[in-house]
C-alpha cells in the first residue's frame, strides 16, 4: 500500500509537471528572466501547488499518523545557516543555466531523453561528489 501511494504520488506529480509547462526549460528560464521577456507561468504553478499543500498541512496537523504508514517522518530542522543558503544559491545557479530542476529533469527522461539524460547524469554526479566530500556530522 505504501508502494502504491508512492507510485500514485509520483505519477500525478509527473503528469502535473508535464501539463504545467514546467518540463520546458525555456519556459522555466523565462520565469527567471525578469529583466527580459518574463513568463509568469511558473508563478501559477507554484501558487496552485502551494495552496493545495497548505490545506494538506492543515489536515496533517489533525492526524495522529499517516493513512498507510505508522508515523509521520518530517524534517524538523529549523537551522538557517550558510550550508542551507549556499546550497540553495548553488542550486539556483544550476537551475538558471539549464532551465531544469530535479523534478522536471527526471520526468523529461520520458520526453527529451538525450538532453534529460545528460542533465540527470551530471546531477547524479554532483550528488555523488557531495556524498564523497560530506563531513560526517550532518
Amino acid at each position: 500500500m505504501r508502494a502504491f501511494v508512492s507510485m500514485l504520488s509520483g505519477i500525478l506529480f509527473g503528469f502535473g509537471l508535464a501539463l504545467s509547462g514546467m518540463m520546458d526549460p525555456s519556459r522555466v528560464r523565462g520565469f527567471l528572466d525578469i529583466f527580459g521577456d518574463w513568463d509568469p507561468t511558473m508563478a501559477f504553478v507554484m501558487g496552485g501547488a502551494v495552496i493545495v499543500m497548505a490545506i494538506a498541512w492543515r489536515m496533517q496537523k489533525a492526524m495522529n499518523k499517516p493513512v498507510v504508514c505508522d508515523q509521520f517522518s518530517l524534517p524538523g530542522t529549523k537551522l538557517i545557516d550558510a550550508r542551507l543558503i549556499g546550497g540553495a544559491a548553488l542550486f539556483g545557479i544550476g537551475w538558471g543555466l539549464a532551465g531544469l530542476c530535479p523534478g522536471p529533469a527526471v520526468a523529461s527522461l520520458a520526453n527529451n531523453l538525450s538532453g534529460a539524460a545528460i542533465f540527470v547524469a551530471a546531477m547524479i554526479a554532483g550528488m555523488v561528489i557531495f556524498r564523497l566530500t560530506e563531513r560526517p556530522a550532518q
Binding site: L8, F15, F44, V45, G48
Partner: peptide, 26 residues
C-alpha cells in the same frame, strides 16, 4: 504565458505532494 495549464498542473503537483504527506507521512 499558460496560466490555466500552469494552475491546473500546479494543483495536480500539490495533490501529488499531499498524497505523499497524508498517505506515507513524507
Amino acid at each position: 504565458a499558460q496560466p490555466v495549464n500552469g494552475l491546473i498542473g500546479g494543483v495536480l503537483i500539490g495533490l501529488a505532494a499531499a498524497i505523499m504527506l497524508l498517505g506515507n507521512g513524507r
